[in-house]
Design a binder for these strands. Structure first.
Lengths: 339, 339
DNA sequence: CTGAAAGCGCTAACAT
DNA sequence: ATGTTAGCGCTTTCAG
């Protein structure tokens, strides 16, 4: 049962040749005779030989592992990003090591150390809500491990980034609310030190501005999860400061609001229209189904991997950080009125 | 920018001592003098030295990586399992490598090869729907890599398993439907070669039997996703063979059915009661919220890790496979009638 | 066409 | 208390 794994030496010994010959035969080196190659490959097959990537990585000081650091795995958006990462990584012979920070800064820092220790080829990261300084990622770069950020990024980082066009997405959402008759539109947003928070907020403001609707600070909130949204919405409606539209920073928050509205006997979208952001699985499950912004998580993951692999291939000394922006799409469902 | 990583040699050279002394100092070996330890640790800190786990793993022929193979990352249930895995692995100094089979048998086999190549410490797996033979996992065991299965398991595998009590969960669900007045209860199930399919099916049958309700084969279906459920439910209702209760093998399927029912102008639960299985995020998002079975994904992940770590520690030659069964809970919401 | 030897980074037995 | 040496599995000069 408990067996040592087969090595190149085992094959060499059994065939009475040297390890180097086996190594060369295995990678179809032109110098090796056809018979030797045949013998080696057959025996390797028979013994179920698998190259030890640890040794390989050690030898060439570069592994075939992509590290991924994310706040929380259970969010549908992050799972779709990772799904995209994994599929493309797999197609290119890379494996994926994941680590969730659970929104803790300490753990995030720790995970970067693990990545360093593991000598991963590169790291893809979406920072925790608490992260305000980025030295730990600079350390990775300083050690020759390229870092690509996605979704949750910060302006200060001079590194590769993949983001969705949050400004434009938010603009589309709010503009649509206005076009369908809403005039008092609330915004449930997230921390402003995350660019997604700031950009979605600005998109919201810009849509109001473009449509000559005055900004009402009493309708703008930091509120980015289900429970908060339920609580806030209930309070808002009862207070008499009721909006006729809500643009939420993500789907979960939007659905929290939606349920609170219905719970109080009001109708969506007739009394209050609601738009989310992400277009996750849940956005079709609510009643009514949620109008939202498609955030292309899967593609985002793939693009992040592509940027990383490009950098790995080029291996240039100087690298000019690039920022890739992915277009969003407005997905109209039934939580908003007809145009 | 592009820097080599700091090694034990660098520290040794800078301090004019040998590599082994540095190594020992770093792990607080009693033989080493206090001053040397101090000097080494300070320099290590200063140079931001991180041990190369590749070299370490190679040396002791065992890595600190846990491999995880799952069908699809984007399912909420699997993300919660992985979340549990990652948290406990992290707490024990392990990293997690994930690989999704995307329900493809070939890819699953391939991923086991990757795990072999990577010399992971152990592998946790939930098999794809298509997997009917398990040799590739036996190969892992034969190479000294312990395998622990979770959720999707098969009877034939003589290995460690963690499952939920599917039979009892299904029984509770259907029994509750009956107690709340349902008499014609349909079952939307998954492949019978997966134990979860068979056990949930049997739990369904047993509840009918216990309550003296005859089995009606025209109400039993293989139907395990959202679109299938919508289509099937619509057909069923229109055909006149309408059930008054539906027990679905997972939440998504249940919600597909729920939406179809509402779409046809019928009411849930008054006309048709619906129960799902999993208690994922979405089960609270539907309207009405879904009565379902809590499947304890996060705990399942943790238990799987614990079993694995135990085996790793004991390192016994002979190992008696163990099967851990996790109790389920019925979560009553509003897609079923009052008792 | 093939082999011997060195080395990737680290540790542990064996010196001293 | 510290240094030397060998070796984990593999590749790659350098020599035949």
């Amino acid at each position: 049962m408990k067996g040592r794994q087969v090595t190149i030496k085992d094959i060499a010994a059994e065939l009475g040749i040297s390890a180097s010959t086996v190594s060369r035969a295995l990678k179809d080196h032109p110098d090796i005779s056809v018979e030797t190659k045949k013998a080696v490959n057959e025996l390797a097959e028979k013994l179920n030989y698998k190259p030890n990537v640890l040794a390989l990585s050690l030898r060439q000081s570069r592994s075939k592992i992509i590290g991924v650091i994310i706040p929380e795995l259970i969010h549908h958006f992050f799972s779709s990003v990772i799904s995209g990462i994994d599929d493309l990584a797999y197609a290119n012979g890379y494996s994926v090591m994941i680590a969730q920070s659970n929104e803790s800064f300490e753990r995030e820092v720790n995970e970067t150390q693990v990545m360093l220790s593991s000598r991963v080829a590169g790291v893809l990261v979406s920072v925790s809500k608490k992260t305000k300084n980025f030295e730990h990622f600079q350390v990775l770069e300083d050690n020759g491990i390229p870092v690509v950020f996605f979704d949750r990024v910060s302006k200060e980082m001079k590194m590769d980034k993949v983001v969705v066009d949050d400004f434009d997405g938010a603009f589309k959402a709010v503009d649509y609310l206005i076009k369908t008759g809403c005039k008092r539109i609330a915004h449930y947003g997230t921390s402003m030190h995350l660019l997604i928070g700031k950009n979605r907020h600005n998109g919201y403001l810009h849509a109001l501005f473009k449509n000559n609707i005055p900004i009402d600070d009493s309708l703008i909130f930091k509120c980015d999860d289900y429970d908060e949204a339920w609580y806030l919405t209930e309070k808002l409606i009862k207070s008499g400061n009721m909006p006729d539209g809500i643009f939420a920073v993500n789907d979960i928050t939007a659905i929290g609001a939606l349920q609170a509205v219905k719970h109080l006997g009001l109708r969506v979208p007739e009394d209050i229209s609601i738009v989310g952001f992400t277009n996750g699985r849940i956005s079709t499950m609510s009643d009514p189904p949620l109008t939202t912004i498609e955030q292309h998580g899967y593609e985002m993951g793939q693009i992040a991997v592509r940027i990383l692999l490009n950098r790995l291939e080029k291996d240039e000394e100087e690298h000019e950080p690039e920022t890739r922006v992915i277009k969003t799409d407005l997905i109209v469902r039934e939580s908003t009125k007809q145009i």
